[in-house]
Design a protein around this nucleic acid. Structure first.
Lengths: 253, 253
DNA sequence: ATTAAAATGATTTAATTTAATCACTTTGGA
DNA sequence: TCCAAAGTGATTAAATTAAATCATTTTAAT
C-alpha cells in the first residue's frame, strides 16, 4: 500500500476501527512495531489518540482525564472550572441549549444523570448525551462543518428560532466588550446568534484567554447575555469594567 | 459509590472515558481486577465493548472486524455483502441519502475515499463521515431516537422533502411484498418514507432474515423502490416472485 | 559522490497484563 | 438454620507488550 505517509495511514485506520493494537497497525502500514510505537507517541503528544498497554483509540472528544498535551495546549483546567459553574445553573427538568465546542461538551458531561432536555448543534454532544436515558436530545440539523463537527446553515437555525429553552450556553473563540462574541464565518455566527435568540437565560462560557480577540463576523453583542462565565485570569481593570455591565459575571476558580 | 450494579457502573464509566484500563475500572467500581476481567468478558461476549491486552473501549459502532458475538448474532456477513453491492452503485460526485442503521453504516465505510455528498438521519454515520475531507455531510436534525441514535420528527423530514439525492439507501427491520417496508413507530416510518420521496434511485438494503416480517406502521410499499439488495438466503419461490417486480433485485453473495 | 542527520528495524530486557487456581464470602432456597 | 451455588478476591505462573539499545538504511544537502 504505502501510498501516503504513515501517520495519515494510522489515523485513517483508527477512524475505521475503534480499538486497535500495535500489531494491527504493523500489518496495515507494513512498518515495524518499533516505528509504529514511535508514531503513536507522536500522535499521543498531539492529543489525537489515547493509548494503554495494548490498545490505541482515536480520541472521539469524550476524554475526561485529558492527555498531557491537551492540558498544556488548551487551558483545560479553566474550561473544567467554567463548566462546573455552568452546570450549577441547570435544574432537573430544564430545557437547555448547547452551542458547539469543548467547553459545552464539558457541561454535557456534568448533566448525564439529570433529567433534562437538550438541543444542540454539536454532533459529539448529541451522540454522547443520547446514550443516557434521562436525557432527551435534539440536534438542529444541517450541513456539518468539518472543523467543529457541528451543524451550520438555515435549516438548523430555523429550529433554534422555534424553540424556547430555559438556558442557552454559548461558547466562543473570541469575545470583547466592544465587538461582542465573534465567529470566523457567517454560518457559524448565525448559528450562535440563533442560540441567543429565544432562551430565557443566555450564558456565555468563555475562558479569559479569548478575551479581546475577535474574528470577522460579530454574532452576539455582550449585552444580549444574562450571564458570562469565565476564569480568574482577567486583569483587574477589565474585571471592573465587565462587572458593571448588564450581565452577571461569574468568575470560575 | 457502588450504588447500582457493577456492569452498569462499568458501562457508564466507558461512556464517559473513551479508552480505559482495568485498573481504572478497579478504582471506579472498588472491585478486584479479577472481577473486572470477568465482567469485561461478559460485556465483550455481548458485543458492547472491545478489548485489547491493556485497554477497553465502548463499541461506538465503527468496528470493522466485528467481535465474534456480533458475527453470530446479527448475520454480519450478509450485511457486508449487501453493502459491497450497494457501494458499487455510487459514483464520485453523487449525492446520496443514508437511512439510519448498521447496513447503511457499512455503506458509509465504503465511500470514505470518494467525493460525494451525503445526507443522513444517523448520528454515527454523520460523525463518522464528517472526518473525511472528501465528503460533505448533512444531518437532517430533530429529536434523537435513543435506540437507533438517529433523528426523527417533522423538522428532519421537511429537509428530506427539500432535497433531491441521486440515490437513497434505505434499511429496514422488516419487509414483505404485501406490506412493504414497515417500522415500529410512526416517527421512524415517516422518516424512512421521507428518504424514498425525492431520490432518483431508491434502494432497499435488507437481509433476507427480515423478509416476511412486519411492524405496525407501513412506511414504503416495495414498488416504490428502484432497486432491492438482499442476500442469497431467500427461498427459490420468493426469489421468483420478487424477480418479476418493478424493482431490480440484486442478490449479494 | 560524500557525508551527516534522521528514520527505521531487530534484539534483548524490563514492565505490565492476563489466565488459572484455590480459598473465602455472599446469596437464595429447602 | 443449613447448604449448595454463584460470585468474589488473592496469589502465582504464563503470555503479551513496551522500552532501551544498537546496527542499518534512507534522506537531503553540499
Amino acid at each position: 500500500m504505502g501510498k501516503y505517509n504513515r501517520l495519515d495511514q494510522i489515523m485513517d485506520y483508527l477512524k475505521l476501527h475503534n480499538l486497535v493494537t500495535v500489531e494491527e497497525l504493523v500489518i496495515a502500514t507494513e512498518a515495524s512495531p518499533a516505528t509504529i510505537r514511535r508514531d503513536l507517541i507522536k500522535l499521543d503528544q498531539h492529543g489525537v489518540i489515547s493509548r494503554t498497554h495494548g490498545g490505541v483509540t482515536l480520541n472521539r472528544f469524550i476524554p475526561s482525564q485529558p492527555t498531557t498535551s491537551e492540558k498544556i495546549h488548551k487551558n483545560f483546567n479553566e474550561k473544567q472550572l467554567i463548566a462546573d459553574v455552568a452546570a450549577k445553573l441547570i435544574k432537573p427538568g430544564d430545557s437547555i441549549a448547547l452551542d458547539a465546542g469543548t467547553t459545552t461538551l464539558e457541561i454535557a458531561k456534568r448533566i448525564t444523570q439529570m433529567p433534562v432536555r437538550v438541543i444542540t448543534s454539536d454532533l459529539h454532544i448529541a451522540l454522547f448525551l443520547s446514550e443516557f436515558k434521562q436525557i432527551e436530545v435534539t440536534i438542529i440539523g444541517g450541513k456539518i462543518d468539518d472543523s467543529s463537527q457541528s451543524c451550520i446553515g438555515e435549516h438548523g437555525r430555523s429550529l433554534l428560532l422555534q424553540i424556547n429553552p430555559d438556558i442557552s450556553f454559548i461558547s466562543c473563540n473570541s469575545w470583547s466588550l466592544s465587538k461582542g462574541v465573534t465567529a470566523p464565518t457567517e454560518d457559524k455566527a448565525l448559528i450562535k446568534a440563533g442560540f441567543a435568540e429565544k432562551a430565557d437565560k443566555v450564558v456565555l462560557v468563555a475562558d479569559s484567554s479569548k478575551y479581546n480577540s475577535y474574528s470577522l463576523f460579530t454574532s452576539i453583542p455582550l449585552n444580549r447575555f444574562t450571564d458570562i462565565i469565565t476564569d480568574n485570569h482577567l486583569d483587574t481593570e477589565t474585571l471592573q469594567v465587565l462587572q458593571n455591565q448588564i450581565f452577571k459575571l461569574h468568575i470560575a476558580s
